[in-house]
């Protein structure tokens, strides 16, 4: 279980996270949604041990989260930061040398599932194929948690579909969790167990997707829109 308690994170004088408390058990697929600058990426980096909070505590199975958590969680950044002169095979070999939980057999299987050639150089790949390679090397790790920053962003529908199917096929919801930030809520909703909504550095809602539909009779997208409107009205009334 990853637990964050009363996290505050500042970049200079700007507060990126304000009093965020959340627990993520194993075995869940969770969507992290909110506008740009709402704190999604910061929250993911915090869970990955890449950032330390100004105050509050972050723990993994009760132990404080440090950079060494990288051996248990697979973090995928929203930037393209591979050595572009590598071939796909060389990138896989590099990942294997860096992570103990990297599974070479699984890596080959995912790359094949996603139809990417092992001999292509990263720099010669299309944006879509770079997206496929990125998710392939991330999922090839047998991590407890996969933290994915915008895995679908800027990719065409074919690639998004492939990545979604790769996620379902190559993660085990009985013992692993996936937390992904996204703007494509409507599309991603069928993949999710829960949704966390961020706004202005605060966590404003955390709900099970089935319950949103059961209880409110609307899908996650409409629910989020109504949630934002509600906040707006509260603000205007000066609450």
């Amino acid at each position: 279980m990853i637990e964050l308690k009363q996290i505050v994170k500042k970049y200079g004088s700007k507060r990126a996270l304000q009093d965020v408390t959340v627990s993520i058990p194993r075995g869940k697929v969770i969507g992290l949604v909110g506008e740009n600058g709402s704190g999604k990426s910061t929250l993911l980096k915090m869970m990955a041990g890449l950032l330390t909070p100004n105050s509050g505590s972050t723990t993994f199975d009760g132990q404080p989260i440090t950079r060494r958590i990288a051996s248990r969680v697979a973090y995928m950044s929203d930037t393209d930061d591979f050595y572009t002169y590598f071939t796909v095979q060389q990138l896989i070999d590099f990942y294997e040398s860096q992570f103990e939980d990297f599974d070479m057999v699984k890596a080959k299987e995912i790359v094949q599932f996603l139809n990417v050639s092992l001999t292509s150089r990263i720099k010669s790949l299309s944006k879509g194929n770079r997206g496929r390679v990125k998710i392939a090397v991330t999922l090839a790790r047998e991590a407890d948690y996969y933290l994915l920053d915008e895995p679908f962003s800027g990719l065409d529908p074919m690639v998004r579909d492939d990545i979604a199917k790769g996620l379902i096929r190559f993660t085990d919801p009985e013992r692993q969790s996936v937390i992904m930030s996204t703007h494509e809520i409507r599309e991603v909703e069928p993949l999710l167990d829960e949704i966390i909504v961020m706004r202005g550095g605060r966590l404003i809602a955390h709900e099970a997707v089935d319950e949103i539909r059961d209880f409110y009779g609307i899908d996650a997208t409409s629910w989020m829109v109504s949630l934002f409107k509600e906040r707006q009205v509260e603000r205007e009334l000066g609450k």
Partner: peptide, 16 residues
Amino acid sequence: VREYAVEVGVNANTMQ
């Protein structure tokens, strides 16, 4: 469960 989940594009927990 996994095959069907991949086919229709839903979370395997949902299919379970």
